[in-house]
Design a protein around this nucleic acid. Structure first.
Length: 1005
RNA sequence: AGGCCGGUAGCUCAGCUGGUUAGAGCGCGCCCCUGAUAAGGGCGAGGUCGGAAGUUCAAGUCUUCUUCGGCCUACCA
C-alpha cells in the first residue's frame, strides 16, 4: 500500500498495455527458411491431404515449366499465383492437392548436352544415342532439383517429393499409350509438307522454336519467259484440256476460259517475261509455278532505254516485261531501266511460262515442264513484282497454292508431286540437275555457319547464263531463325506425322470443349477458340533424339502396325518396354521383338514427338494416373502465351483421345514487365530475379506483390513497387502484432456474449461478416487482388485508424474485467481468427508466425485451418449505418481540431472539448447507445460515450447554430488531466473515477 | 502486317447497364502523439481519366482514328 496523498503514484504500472515478444521487424529473408523447415518437419503437405477437407477435391493442375535454367519473375509469379489459389481453396475446405511437374524433353536441353559433348571433343555422331539420352536425362534432373528448391523457397506448397516429370519412364509410356490410341483412329497420318527446318541442327522446328531476326539476303528479280506455244504444243494442250473438261464438268468453264485466253493472247505475249522477285535464290531450281492475284493490275512493259552503267545490263531495249503496275517503278529502277512503254493490260490468268533455268547448261531436260500461273490469296503488291515465285517444297503458301490447284495442273499435264529438293543438311538432292546436286543452301558449320552456302551463287550463275536474271541486290529482312543456334531456318518438304484437325472432327470437339470451359479473364475463351478454329493439322514429329518416340511401326507398303490383327499385343509389348527402360526401351529393342514374328518389311519410326505433345499428355500421366487426383482438373493457370501452347496442346490431345477438355477452367497471367511497362530483357538491363527479392525483402513481399496486382494484365515490378509492397507488409504486420499484444493472456473464459457487447464491437463483427460474405465468392472467382485490397483497407482504415485507436483507452485503462474491455478482447480474437486465415494464402510465412505466437504448438499450423465463418446474427446494418454517421461527424471534428493544432494551441486530441449542434447524431446515438456525457455512469463498468468515439475528453451536442466548436481543455478552469488515462476531467483526485475504479481493482490483484 | 489486350493521381488498384464537384490505400508535405514507438493518429496537396475527333442534353464509361506498351500469329516470295 502506498501513500497516495504525499507522492504522485506512477500509474503506468496499473495500465494494461499490450504485451508481446512478437518482433516488429520481420527479418523475412532469414525467417522464411525456418518456417519452410518447420512445414517440412511436420509434413504439412501430407497433413493437408489427410485433413477433413469436407468439400472434397479441388484441383489446380500444374503446367510444367521447362527444366532448364533458373526461375525468373514470370515463373515465380505463376507459381505464387497458383499457390495462393490452392491455399485459398484448401482453406475453403477442399482437398487442394497440388502436384507440380516439369517438362524435361526437347531441343534446348538436347542442344546444351550436345554443346557439352562438343566441348569434350566428341561430336554428336560419336556419342551413342542411349548415352546421349542418358546425359539429357541427367541434365534435366539437375535443373528439376534446382528449380524445385527455388519454387519451395517462394513458399509454394505441393507434392515436391513426388512431382510429375515428362521423362519418368511411366510418363513416357503413358505418352506413347496416348499416341497409340490416336494411331488407332484416322487422326494420325503421314504427310509431306514444307516445314521449318534448321539445316544447322538438322531438325524440323515448331513455330515456337523459331525467333525472328534480321538477315542479310540476296534479292533477285528473275524473268520467266511466257511460253511460246508452237502449234503442236498448243494443240496438245487443247486436247489435254478437253479431256479434263469432259471428266470434270465443274471446272469446265475455267478451263475453257483459260484455253480461249491462251489461244487469243499467246501471240501478243510472245517473247514477253513475267518477272518475279525473291530473297531466296536457291529456291528457283525448285520453282514449279508463279502465283498472282486477281486484285492486282498488271501491265506489259516494253523497255526503250537503259541507264548508263559500268557493266552490261541484264536487260536491253525491246525486252517485254510483265509486272504489277504499282511496282513497275521499283522494278525498273532495280533493273536499271531508264524508260519503257506500257503496251497493254495483262490478265495473267491462263498464261503458262517456261522455267527460267530451262535452257541452262546441264539442264538435261529437267526443267522442260510448263510453269503455270496460279491465283493465290497470299500475293500482294506491297513488295516485289506482284508475282510470287512458287516452290511448293519451300513455302507454306506455295504449298497451299500448289495443292489447291491440282486440277489445273493436271489439265496442263504437270506432275503435282511436291519434289524433295533438299536433304537434311540443306543440300540439293539428285532430283536436281547434276550441277546443283550436293550444293548447300546454308553453311552448317565453321566460322560462317548460318551464312549463304554454295547454292545461291550457282543459281545466280545459271540464271545469268540463261539471260533470265533481271537484277540483283542485297537487303536486310526479318526472317525465321532457330531459337538455339540463331542460324537461319529454311522451309523444306519432308515426310512428317500429323494429327488431323478434321478427319475425326477434332476441331469441332475442341471448339465444343472450349464452350464448356470457364475462362478467367473471359477474353481467354475468344483467344483460344480463334486459335483452334484457324490452326492447321498438328505436326507432331521431330527428327531429334531427346524425346518420346512415335512408337509406330510401319510397313513398306504404308500400313501401320496398328492396322494388324495383333496390334493389341504389339502395343502392350511396346508400352511394357518403355515403362521398363523409358524411351530407350523403344529405340534399343529390335522390331522383331515388338512384332513377335512377321517382321518382314516392317520398320520402327525413329521420329520423336513434339514436346507439346508430351506436355499435352500431363492430364493422362498425372491426373488420370494418380489415385489422389481427379481425372480432370478444375483449373489450369498459366501465362497468356499458353493459349498457343499448353492450353491448346492439352485440349487437342485430350479431345483427340477422350473427347473432352482436361480442364473445367482456364486462367491466365499477364507478363511481368518493368516499372515502365517494358518487357524485361538482359539488353535493357531491367531484369529482376526472384532470388534477389527473396534475399533482400523476402518471398512474402513477392507474394503480396502478386496478390495486389492485376494478374489478368501485364504486371509491373520495380524498386518503388517492391518498396510499396514492403510498406504494406509492415503495416499488416504491425496491425497483427498489436492484436497479439492486446490479446495477451486471452482465453475464451473472458469472452462476452454478443448481446452484451457495446455497439462498437457489434460494428466490428458486422464488418467481419460483411467481408466474410464477399470473401468466399472472391476466392471462387480467383479475385485475390480484391481480397487483398479489402483486407488491407480493413486493417488500416477500420482497425488501426478507427477501432483500435478508439479502444486503446478501454483496453489500457478500463478495469481489467469490465465488460467493455473484455468485449473488445473477444472481438479482437474474432478478428484475429479471420484476418490470419484470410491472409494466410498470401502471407503464408507471416501468418504462420502470427498464429504460432498466439497458439504455440509443436506441429500445428495456420495452414491446417479453414476460413472462419461468421454467424448470421453479426449482420447489423443499423449499427453499421450509425457508426458511419459518427465517423463522418468525427472527421468534421478532426478538421476543426486540426485548425487549432495549426494555431499551436491544441496538441493531443484528448485536450479537446467538442461541441456540436444539438440536432446532430440523434438517431446514431440512439442506435449506438451513446450519451454525450463526459463521464461514465458506472465507472467500474464503463459504457461508451460519444467522446470515446472521437478520442476527445468531452463531446457535447448542445449548440443551436450549425457550428462545431472546439475548445482546449488545458486552458479550461476546473479541468485537469488524468494522470492515468490522460483524459481531461472535472472532479476530485488526480485520476478519473473510471481510472480510480480500475486502479482499485488492480490493487486488489 | 494481322489478331487479342491494356494505358484512370508519384505507385498499386476501384469506378456496374454513359448522368451530381472521378474514389481508395500507399507514398509525399505539414502537424500531433511518445502507454503499438525503427510504431500510432490527424489534416493536406496531387488525376479531367494516353492523345484527337465524333455520337449524346450528358462520356473515364459508346464509335472512329492515333500513340505507347504487352502477348500471340503471319509475312518477308
Amino acid at each position: 500500500m502506498t501513500d497516495s496523498t504525499t507522492t504522485a503514484r506512477d500509474y503506468r504500472e496499473t495500465l494494461f498495455l499490450p504485451k508481446t515478444d512478437f518482433p516488429m521487424r520481420a527479418g523475412l529473408p532469414k525467417a522464411e527458411p525456418k518456417w519452410l523447415e518447420r512445414w517440412n518437419r511436420i509434413d504439412l503437405y501430407r497433413k493437408q491431404r489427410e485433413a477433413e477437407n469436407a468439400l472434397g477435391q479441388w484441383t489446380l493442375h500444374d503446367g510444367p515449366p521447362y527444366a532448364n535454367g533458373h526461375i525468373h519473375m514470370g515463373t515465380a509469379l505463376n507459381k505464387i499465383h497458383k499457390d495462393i489459389v490452392n491455399r485459398s481453396h484448401q482453406m475453403l475446405g477442399h482437398d487442394a492437392n497440388y502436384v507440380p511437374g516439369w517438362d524435361c524433353h526437347g531441343l534446348p536441353i538436347e542442344w546444351k548436352v550436345e554443346e557439352e559433348f562438343r566441348s569434350k571433343g566428341r561430336s554428336k555422331d560419336d556419342v551413342p544415342a542411349s548415352e546421349f539420352r542418358a546425359r539429357c536425362r541427367e541434365y534435366a534432373a539437375g535443373w528439376v532439383d534446382i528449380q524445385r528448391e527455388e519454387f519451395k523457397r517462394l513458399g509454394v506448397i505441393g507434392d515436391w517429393d513426388d512431382p510429375y516429370l515428362t521423362m519418368k519412364p511411366q510418363s513416357e509410356a503413358d505418352i506413347c499409350a496416348e499416341l497409340l490410341k490416336i494411331a488407332r483412329t484416322v487422326q494420325l497420318y503421314r504427310g509431306s509438307k514444307p516445314i521449318m527446318w534448321s539445316p544447322v541442327e538438322q531438325t524440323a522446328l515448331a513455330e515456337a522454336e523459331v525467333e525472328y531476326a534480321d538477315r542479310r539476303a540476296t534479292a533477285i528479280y528473275v524473268k520467266f519467259p511466257v511460253k511460246a506455244y508452237t502449234n503442236e504444243t498448243l494443240q496438245l494442250t487443247i486436247e489435254a484440256a478437253e479431256k479434263v473438261r469432259s471428266e470434270n464438268p465443274d471446272g469446265a468453264d475455267i478451263i475453257a476460259e483459260g484455253l480461249n485466253y491462251v489461244k487469243r493472247k499467246h501471240g501478243e505475249f510472245n517473247g514477253a517475261y513475267v518477272v518475279i522477285w525473291t530473297t531466296t535464290p536457291w529456291t528457283i531450281p525448285a520453282n514449279r509455278a508463279v502465283s498472282f492475284s486477281s486484285k492486282i493490275q498488271y501491265g506489259l512493259y516494253e523497255v526503250t532505254e537503259m541507264e548508263e552503267s559500268d557493266f552490261e545490263p541484264w536487260s536491253k531495249p525491246g525486252d517485254k516485261l510483265i509486272v504489277a503496275d504499282d511496282l513497275w517503278e521499283t522494278v525498273s529502277k532495280s533493273g536499271l531501266i531508264k524508260s519503257a512503254n506500257r503496251l497493254t493490260d495483262v490478265d495473267p490468268k491462263g498464261l503458262v511460262l517456261d522455267h527460267p533455268l530451262k535452257d541452262m547448261a546441264d539442264a538435261n531436260g529437267k526443267y522442260d515442264f510448263p510453269v503455270p500461273l496460279l491465283e493465290g490469296d497470299h500475293v500482294t503488291a506491297d513488295a516485289g513484282t506482284g508475282f510470287v515465285h512458287t516452290a511448293p517444297s519451300h513455302g507454306e503458301d506455295d504449298y497451299i497454292v500448289w495443292m489447291s490447284n491440282q486440277k489445273k495442273l493436271e489439265a496442263l499435264g504437270i506432275d503435282p508431286v511436291v519434289p524433295m529438293t533438299l536433304d537434311d543438311k540443306g543440300c540439293y538432292t539428285d532430283v536436281m540437275p547434276e550441277r546443283f546436286q550436293g550444293l548447300d543452301v546454308i553453311r552448317t558449320s565453321g566460322k560462317k555457319r548460318g551464312q549463304d552456302g554454295k547454292a545461291n551463287p550457282e543459281v545466280l550463275k545459271a540464271l545469268v547464263e540463261c539471260g533470265n536474271l533481271l537484277a540483283r541486290g542485297v537487303l536486310t529482312l526479318r526472317d525465321a531463325h532457330s531459337w538455339r543456334s540463331k542460324a537461319p531456318v529454311i522451309r523444306r518438304a519432308t515426310p512428317q506425322w500429323f494429327i488431323s484437325m478434321s478427319k475425326a472432327g477434332l476441331r469441332d470437339k475442341a471448339m465444343a470443349a472450349i464452350e464448356q470451359t470457364q475462362f478467367w479473364p473471359p477474353r481467354g475463351k475468344n483467344r483460344l477458340s480463334t486459335m483452334v478454329a484457324d490452326r492447321p493439322d498438328w505436326l507432331i514429329s521431330r527428327q531429334r533424339n531427346w524425346g518420346v518416340p512415335i512408337t509406330v511401326i510401319v510397313h513398306e507398303d504404308g500400313r501401320l502396325h496398328t492396322e494388324r490383327d495383333d496390334a493389341d499385343a504389339i502395343d502392350a509389348r511396346i508400352l511394357a518396354a518403355v515403362e521398363k527402360d523409358g524411351v530407350d526401351g523403344w529405340f534399343d529393342t529390335p522390331v522383331e521383338d515388338f512384332l513377335g514374328g512377321d517382321a518382314d518389311g516392317w520398320t520402327k519410326v525413329t521420329d520423336i514427338l513434339d514436346v507439346w505433345f508430351d506436355s499435352g499428355c500431363t492430364h493422362a500421366f498425372c491426373l488420370k494416373r494418380r489415385d489422389d487426383l481427379p481425372d480432370r482438373a478444375d483449373l489450369y493457370l498459366e501465362g497468356s502465351d499458353q493459349h498457343r501452347g499448353w492450353f491448346q496442346s492439352s485440349l487437342l490431345e485430350s479431345c483427340a483421345v477422350y473427347g473432352e477438355a482436361p480442364y473445367k477452367g482456364v486462367m491466365t497471367d499477364g507478363f511481368v514487365v518493368d516499372n515502365k511497362g517494358l518487357k524485361m530483357s538482359k539488353s535493357l538491363g531491367n531484369t529482376i530475379s526472384p532470388e534477389d527479392i527473396s534475399k533482400q525483402f523476402g518471398a512474402e513481399i513477392m507474394r503480396i506483390w502478386v496478390s495486389s496486382s492485376d494478374t489478368y494484365n501485364d504486371l509491373r515490378i520495380g524498386k518503388e513497387i517492391i518498396q510499396t509492397n514492403a510498406d504494406a507488409y509492415r503495416k499488416l504486420r504491425n496491425t497483427l502484432r498489436y492484436m497479439i499484444g492486446a490479446l495477451d493472456g486471452y482465453s475464451d473464459a473472458e469472452a462476452v456474449d454478443y448481446a452484451d457487447m457495446p455497439a462498437l464491437e457489434k460494428w466490428v463483427l458486422h464488418r467481419l461478416s460483411e467481408i466474410s460474405a464477399q470473401h468466399e465468392g472472391w476466392v471462387r472467382d480467383h479475385d485475390h487482388k480484391r481480397i487483398f485490397s479489402t483486407l488491407f483497407n480493413f486493417c488500416t482504415v477500420d482497425l488501426s485508424a478507427f477501432y483500435f485507436d478508439i479502444r486503446k483507452d478501454a483496453l489500457y485503462c478500463d478495469p481489467l474485467n469490465s465488460t467493455r474491455r473484455r468485449a473488445c478482447r473477444t472481438v479482437m480474437h474474432e478478428i484475429f481468427l479471420r484476418l490470419t486465415t484470410w491472409l494466410a494464402p498470401v502471407m503464408c510465412f507471416t501468418m504462420e508466425e502470427v498464429w504460432q505466437a498466439r497458439f504455440p504448438s509443436e506441429d500445428g499450423s495456420v495452414h491446417l485451418e479453414t476460413f472462419h465463418t461468421c454467424p448470421e446474427a453479426w449482420r447489423n446494418a443499423e449499427i453499421a449505418e450509425a457508426v458511419e454517421g459518427v465517423r463522418a461527424f468525427r472527421m468534421e471534428a478532426y478538421e476543426a481540431m486540426e485548425a487549432m493544432r495549426k494555431e499551436g494551441s491544441l496538441k493531443s486530441s484528448l485536450e479537446a472539448s467538442v461541441r456540436a449542434p444539438k440536432s446532430r447524431l440523434a438517431k446514431e446515438r440512439a442506435v449506438l447507445g451513446l450519451t454525450d456525457e463526459s463521464s461514465y455512469e458506472d465507472p467500474s463498468n464503463p459504457s461508451d460515450v460519444l467522446a470515446d468515439y472521437l478520442i476527445v475528453s468531452k463531446c457535447l451536442l448542445n449548440i443551436d447554430s450549425d457550428d462545431m466548436l472546439v475548445t482546449d481543455l488545458k486552458c479550461a478552469e476546473d479541468w485537469k488531466k488524468c494522470e492515468r488515462s490522460w483524459k481531461y476531467f472535472q472532479g476530485e483526485g488526480e485520476i478519473t473515477p473510471r481510472d480510480a475504479a480500475a486502479v482499485a481493482a488492480f490493487d486488489q490483484g
